[in-house]
Amino acid sequence: MVLTLLQPGTEDPSLSAAMVNDSSRRSASDTALSAGPVLANGGGSALGDAAQGASGQIGQALAAQEAAERRAEERRREAAERARAAASSGGSGSSGNSGGAPAAGPVGGAVQVAGDGIQAALKMGWQAIGGDEFLGSTLGSNWSPYNGAGHDGQGRRTSDAISVENGNLVIRGDSQGNTGGMAWGTSQKYGKWEMRAQFPKGDKQYHPVLLLWPSEVSWPEGGEIDFAETTSASDDVSFFLHYGSSNSQKDAKKQLDITQWHNYAVEWTPDAIVGYVDGVEWFRSEDPNTFPPGPMHATIQLDYFPDGGSPEPSEMRVAWMRQYK
């Protein structure tokens, strides 16, 4: 089967129009996601903790570098453990890591990486088939960054807004509405996806979103699963399930300190679509009429919703994206 990767900002005008004209799907979130109080940044980050602990001894910059190296090594060990488990149990799979570490095999019994929190995948024994740990210095080849008009034709999506720094993907939005987004090249119908993300305090006009986008059936008929969507100024996060030609929606909202690191996951089976935060279920739909009709692929975006003048620069960070059977 030949899969056509649908993504906003591509040269295909029909696909670009489908994404940039999706203001109707986001309008509900514009009013639902309100600005919250300023909160401390980075408390759940091993990198932030290490930098703070080393302050005054070897300097914050050096501490950050060393912490990133330790974190990368921990991830490599975890990936190696998964690979050994797969080999001993007869499992198989392929690596999708930009850093070259294996990401296949059963993970139910794997030891969680320190600082990576409670993961739905480890809790429920999902079997990994690929993903990206963002261990390198550049974006992996399985990602396709967007270049073109921004959300609803406002601002601009550019690959210049995307970087890989200290073991994290970083997408930045500037004061002019220049921001970024990218699509993962491996699609599947049914499966599970989990991402570890942090949304530092920023401007309400920027909307971080982790989602699944249709790969074969055009939007809106192809559906859309936003399993983490918020604004950079919010104190909550929302789940939006879009379905049908009229872009109908089911949604849920959860109070959450989004400035801290959290694990956001979605499970899509023939029986249900379920959302998780830090291994705890918070959204479920068992109505088959709400399910996507075809394969989906993972997408990471920082969307610009102009509302009230020039935005303050904002960013989102993702430590890893993992895809499961």
Rank of each mutant, 00 (worst) to 15 (best):
residue 108 G to I: 09
residue 110 A to T: 04
residue 93 G to A: 06
residue 81 E to L: 10
residue 92 S to A: 11
residue 95 S to T: 11
residue 97 N to E: 05
residue 92 S to R: 10
residue 71 R to Y: 02
residue 76 R to Y: 15
residue 83 A to G: 01
residue 99 G to L: 08
residue 79 A to C: 14
residue 110 A to C: 08
residue 111 V to S: 01
residue 97 N to R: 13
residue 95 S to Q: 02
residue 109 G to Y: 13
residue 83 A to E: 13
residue 108 G to S: 14
residue 105 G to T: 10
residue 103 A to D: 09
residue 71 R to V: 13
residue 82 R to Y: 01
residue 111 V to W: 01
residue 103 A to N: 10
residue 108 G to P: 03
residue 106 P to F: 08
residue 82 R to P: 03
residue 109 G to N: 10
residue 79 A to E: 01
residue 102 P to R: 11
residue 85 A to D: 01
residue 86 A to T: 03
residue 79 A to P: 02
residue 93 G to T: 03
residue 99 G to R: 13
residue 70 R to L: 05
residue 100 G to L: 14
residue 91 G to L: 06
residue 91 G to Y: 05
residue 84 R to V: 09
residue 95 S to K: 01
residue 85 A to S: 02
residue 92 S to F: 07
residue 71 R to K: 09
residue 105 G to L: 11
residue 109 G to V: 13
residue 87 A to M: 13
residue 87 A to H: 10
residue 104 A to G: 10
residue 107 V to Y: 03
residue 72 A to V: 15
residue 74 E to G: 04
residue 87 A to R: 08
residue 94 S to A: 06
residue 90 G to S: 00
residue 92 S to D: 03
residue 73 E to S: 14
residue 74 E to Y: 08
residue 100 G to E: 07
residue 93 G to D: 09
residue 71 R to W: 05
residue 69 E to L: 11
residue 78 E to W: 15
residue 70 R to K: 09
residue 83 A to Y: 11
residue 71 R to D: 12
residue 111 V to C: 09
residue 80 A to W: 14
residue 93 G to W: 07
residue 96 G to T: 07
residue 85 A to R: 00
residue 72 A to C: 09
residue 101 A to G: 02
residue 106 P to C: 07
residue 79 A to Y: 01
residue 73 E to D: 09
residue 96 G to E: 05
residue 109 G to H: 15
residue 90 G to H: 02
residue 80 A to D: 14
residue 76 R to Q: 12
residue 95 S to G: 03
residue 84 R to S: 06
residue 96 G to S: 00
residue 74 E to V: 04
residue 73 E to Y: 15
residue 100 G to R: 09
residue 97 N to V: 00
residue 102 P to Y: 05
residue 111 V to F: 06
residue 102 P to D: 06
residue 84 R to K: 12
residue 94 S to W: 06
residue 93 G to C: 03
residue 104 A to Y: 12
residue 96 G to Y: 00
residue 76 R to T: 10
residue 85 A to I: 02
residue 105 G to S: 09
residue 105 G to D: 01
residue 72 A to T: 11
residue 107 V to N: 01
residue 104 A to C: 13
residue 97 N to D: 04
residue 110 A to P: 08
residue 104 A to T: 02
residue 69 E to R: 13
residue 68 A to I: 08
residue 85 A to G: 08
residue 87 A to T: 06
residue 76 R to L: 14
residue 109 G to T: 11
residue 102 P to E: 06
residue 88 S to I: 05
